[in-house]
Each structure stands twice: as structure tokens, then as C-alpha cells.
Design a protein around this nucleic acid. Structure first.
Lengths: 234, 234
DNA sequence: GATGTCCATATTGTAAGACAATCTGTCAAG
DNA sequence: CTTGACAGATTGTCTTACAATATGGACATC
């Protein structure tokens, strides 16, 4: 598929694909709605009334329904026949199961990445880690979430397994509504910083098993923090 | 959510839910199309023309499109704007990545299941294993695939993690088109039987780590068999 | 003969309208 | 307080329609 010559070149423009792809209304609708759900505009339990969404997005009902079907298959929303779509509320066991799988897959991703980390990706991780540190010092929640995302991005895209990446993105999306709240817990950010630093150090030193362990532990700690938040809310 | 009394009862009727659920046309369409793809009626590379599907399923275009969107989000089919839906062809690296994740998750599921296997589920596994043995002896491919499914079902539903189950089902669906072909390779079935027996023995003896290892190895062997088939086809 | 241009046709993308089926909440009757 | 009935809201689905885009081939050009 990719040009054989590419492997001889330095990784400056990794897979820049020139394919122009017209965005269909449906695709944009999916993106907008996903953003809206992740941003918390629609909260767990909220109903998604087709007519309202048509008005909000300025598109027709068939297009809205197609978009909702896509999100349904992603498990970001659910549907009950004749009652329509809604944002599902998740029980704690289910949330915990997601964290368990995250621990497993992020550990694997970290281990895989360690074995083949490029200089560029390590630099990106370090930059994100520095940003996160600054965001913690500034108590800036938005910046914390953003830099956390940038910290993981090189690991996921550099671990060499797109399936892991795809699955993790899906799982993360499903628990986003908890992330900002648990991150905001007093002291969690600082612990998070320490755990992420541990991951980075392990990756940089080339110790795959240490990286796996550190990544696992980070997720497990995040899970514990999420549980406290979840119980408080209930 | 569930009645507290239920926990005091014996597990004779595990969650018999009386909820009647009307099947919408769209749901039936998704099921029919998924079956058709898994059964190989639509092969990788085939286009799925909306008009034809309308005629085949006897439903309208909006309904067909909704169904296709669902399957698209499941990654069972793909879409190119203005060119419609098609069954994607997978490259070997991608297939291998799926097997890698399967190895990880099936290993985990086997380990989790070992720690909490019920008598009933163990019996179901044994029965499935016996069926598989008979199917191998009779050289009956259909029966082999069916009994393999029944062998794994108790593990997945009994491992206590529905997310793992959900992910694995999705991954399996994406490589089904390879399974029957690689299973039919001379000698593969017999090896498969040995590997599955090893899994069962480990689970029954309560050795979670042995079960994880055996499950991993079984997937790795399946991956190797699939590679041979894939290369032959190319 | 290879390449580029243009058009007819098929198919998709999207909208609008319609109507039956089903759910929800309200209110009266028992 | 429970039951039943009814009005309004919403979904499930189909039909029709039309613009936008892709595909394949005819034809002209180099």
C-alpha cells in the first residue's frame, strides 16, 4: 500500500495522505453530537429528541437518525424502541470493567511502544508532560485534560497496533463524563503527574515491563479516583 | 436495580427478563445483513448498493441506510463518501493486530473465568469440547465452528467482564471470513482440539495463569494458521 | 496507441412530507 | 388511591424528489 521508498525517508511527514474527502452532513453531525456528549452538553439520562436535534444541527430527520445510529453502535448513546435515543447511565460495575480493560490495553500499548519509540514521539510525550505539570501548577483543569490527551497520543499511535488504539478511544469516550470530575478531585492531579512521569521514565529507559506496570497502575489509580467521585454523586 | 431477593435464590432461571421487545425493521435489517456478511454472502471488496439491499430486504432506503450506518460503526463495513458502502478488505498487519488483541483479551477472560467458574458453565464447556471432538472426527466443518463457539461462550459470559465480551465479539466478527478457511486446513482441527483441551484442563484445575497461557497460545496458533491461508489466497 | 475530454447513466446525499404505532401525562370515574 | 380513557408528543417507516458525485464509454487529440 505505502510506497516502499517511504521507509528510507526520515519520519518527517508520517503518512500524509493527499486524499481529499468531502465531509458529508452525516459525518459532521456525528462529530458534533459526539463532541456535545463528551463535553457534557448531554448528560447521562438525557433524552435525544430527533426533532430538537434537527433544529439544533439544521439538518433533516433521516440524517439525524443516521448519525444517532452511528453513535449507538459506538455505545455512546442507546436506544429503546418507540422511546428513542438517550445518553445511557452506567452502573459502577460497568465502569469498573471499562477501567479493567483500559488497564490491560494501555499497559500493552505502553509496553509495545517502549520497544519502538521514536525520538519524535518521546519528545512529544515530554512536551505534553511538561504542559501537564504547568497545568497542575496553574490548577487549570481544561489544560490538564488536553495535555493528558497529548501525552497518550504518541503511545497509542506509536504502539504499532491500531486495533488497541481504536478500542481505547472508544472506551475513553464512554467514561469521559467521569474524567473531568475525578481529575478535579483535590490532590488527584498531582498524583496523576507522578504516575505519568513514571510511565515516561520507564518508556525512555526502554524497560517495556516497567512501562506496562506504570501504565496499569495509572489506570488503576484513575479508577479508584473515579469510584470516589461516582459514589459521591450517588 | 435488580431485586435483592434474587441473590437468595438458586441460579435456576438466570435473569429471565419478561420484557417484550418489539423488533424494529432496522434491527432486523442489521441482523440480516450482519449474518449475510459473516456467512460470506458479501465478500471483502463487494459493494453494498442501497437499492439492491432495499429489494433484498423489502424495506425502504432510509431504513437500509440506518442499518448500514450501524454496521459501519461496528467496522463490519466501510463507506467512501459518494461511493457508498462496501465490505472492507483487510491487510495482513491489520488482521494480525486483531489476533494480538484477541490473545490478550481471551487470555484475560480465561484467567478471570477460572477464578469464578460455575459447575454449569464448566459442564457446558465440556459438552462443547466433546461436540468439537466428534466434529473433528467426522470432519464436519460447520459443526466444528458451532461447537467452538459454544466452547467459548461460557468463558466470555462467565468471566465477569461484559466489556471484554463485547470487544471480542466485535473482533471475531471482523475475521470470521478467515476462520472457516483456516479451520479447514489439514491438521489444524486436531491441533485446535488439543489446545482447547489444554484450556479446559487449566480452567477446571483452577490454575488461572495456566488458563491464560493456554488461551493465548490457542489464539496464536490460530493466527499462524490464518496467516498461511491469507498468504495462499494472495 | 496512449492520453485527455466530455457526456449519459447509476448511485449516493439529503430533504420534505406523510401517517400509523406507541408512549406520556392528565384527568375523570370508580 | 387505583383504573381507564383520551389528547398530545414522538418515534418508525415509507414515498417521493432532486441535486451532487462517480463510473464507464465515446470521441477527439497528440
Amino acid at each position: 500500500m505505502t510506497s516502499p521508498m517511504a521507509t528510507h525517508q526520515i519520519d518527517l511527514k508520517p503518512r500524509l495522505d493527499l486524499r481529499i474527502s468531502p465531509k458529508t452532513v452525516q459525518q459532521q453531525a456525528v462529530e458534533k453530537l459526539r463532541e456535545a456528549i463528551l463535553a457534557g452538553l448531554f448528560k447521562p439520562g438525557d433524552r435525544l429528541v430527533e426533532g430538537e436535534l434537527c433544529a439544533m444541527l439544521g439538518i433533516s430527520r433521516p440524517s439525524v437518525r443516521e448519525a444517532l445510529r452511528s453513535l449507538e453502535a459506538e455505545r455512546l448513546i442507546a436506544m429503546a424502541p418507540n422511546r428513542g435515543f438517550f445518553v445511557p447511565t452506567m452502573s459502577w460495575p460497568e465502569i469498573e470493567e471499562i477501567y479493567k480493560v483500559r488497564a490491560l490495553l494501555e499497559g500493552e500499548a505502553a509496553a509495545l511502544f517502549t520497544a519502538q519509540a521514536t525520538r519524535a514521539r518521546l519528545a512529544a510525550m515530554r512536551a505534553a508532560l511538561d504542559d501537564f505539570k504547568a497545568a497542575v501548577a496553574a490548577d487549570d483543569l481544561i489544560a490538564q485534560l488536553a495535555s493528558t490527551g497529548r501525552f497518550y497520543e504518541p503511545v497509542l499511535s506509536g504502539c504499532g497496533n491500531r486495533i488497541i488504539q481504536e478500542i481505547l478511544q472508544g472506551l475513553m469516550a464512554r467514561i469521559t463524563f467521569l474524567r473531568s470530575r475525578s481529575m478535579s478531585r483535590k490532590g488527584r492531579a498531582r498524583l496523576s503527574l507522578r504516575e505519568m512521569t513514571k510511565i515516561f521514565d520507564a518508556v525512555r529507559s526502554g524497560d517495556a515491563e516497567a512501562a506496562r506496570g506504570a501504565a496499569r497502575e495509572h489506570v488503576e489509580q484513575a479508577c479508584a479516583a473515579a469510584k470516589i467521585v461516582y459514589d459521591d454523586a450517588a
